[in-house]
Design a binder for these strands. Structure first.
Lengths: 127, 127
DNA sequence: ACTACTGTACTAAGTAATTAATACAATAAT
DNA sequence: ATTATTGTATTAATTACTTAGTACAGTAGT
């Protein structure tokens, strides 16, 4: 059982946000490979959404291959650690390119972005 | 007249995306302070959306103070360059914190993030 | 065998976003 | 004065998302 924050906003479809949250939990290792996920009803209750909405999120998630369904037993995270790490890298790459693209749109030169980043690292001591 | 890309997806309300696009155009200087914006109908036609939707986007935008409305003459970007730069910095800060937060969620240590960033800079030559 | 839990499916209702089609008052341009 | 353009308002219809409620078949645990 994992205590998840489920910070959902109303600016996007809830099922999309659920997909992203759960996928994040899997690729970050919160749900290890092969582990059993809580049931649709339990997760729905936990997130405060309708079971149908959570069901829809799982349906979307299954197409990635990140989770497998055993019909009347529950859902499980894939054992394929390589796939998980691959998707993790993919998501990180998207974050990186999106970030640089937005900063470029905002008119920030790469040098400025770099100095902003280093200033962040100076505030919080490097771990 | 500005040629805008209007890359809209269906995963979020269109009016929200319009708000972000136009705000980006203003703070990045594509629409200079004091300049006149195209009419609701023209921008709506340009973006391929309903005039009502564009109208809604402008209503949202006006609360930031970035644009001013002269009742039957049109809309204009504010002359307040300080406000514009302030919002630009604010948006950049959000991008930065969101990025680091997501990478942290993905389980990336700060060191890893830093090395990813520097590798990006090595690919594209610094301008 | 029985019970509880599993994923799944279905219908109905409500809400928000979007489009469409008008219409109106005020002003700039002529 | 007249015309065209401006922002704005209104109503109706459509679509997508969400919730609610119910139901069914299969299986693990007892």
């Amino acid at each position: 059982m994992i205590l998840m924050t489920w910070k959902l906003d109303s600016d996007r479809p809830i099922y999309s946000q659920l997909v992203e949250e759960i996928r994040m939990q899997i690729v970050s290792g919160a749900y290890p490979p092969g582990s059993k996920l809580p049931s649709v009803r339990e997760l729905a209750s936990d997130a405060g959404v309708n079971p149908n909405t959570m069901q829809r999120a799982f349906t979307e998630l299954e197409r990635n291959g990140l989770i497998e369904t055993r019909r009347t037993n529950g859902r499980f995270v894939t054992e394929d650690g390589t796939l998980i790490r691959s998707i993790r890298r993919e998501l990180a790459g998207e974050q990186l390119t999106d970030f640089f693209h937005k900063m470029e749109q905002l008119g920030y030169q790469k040098q400025e972005v770099l100095s902003l980043i280093t200033s962040v690292y100076e505030e919080e001591s490097l771990q």
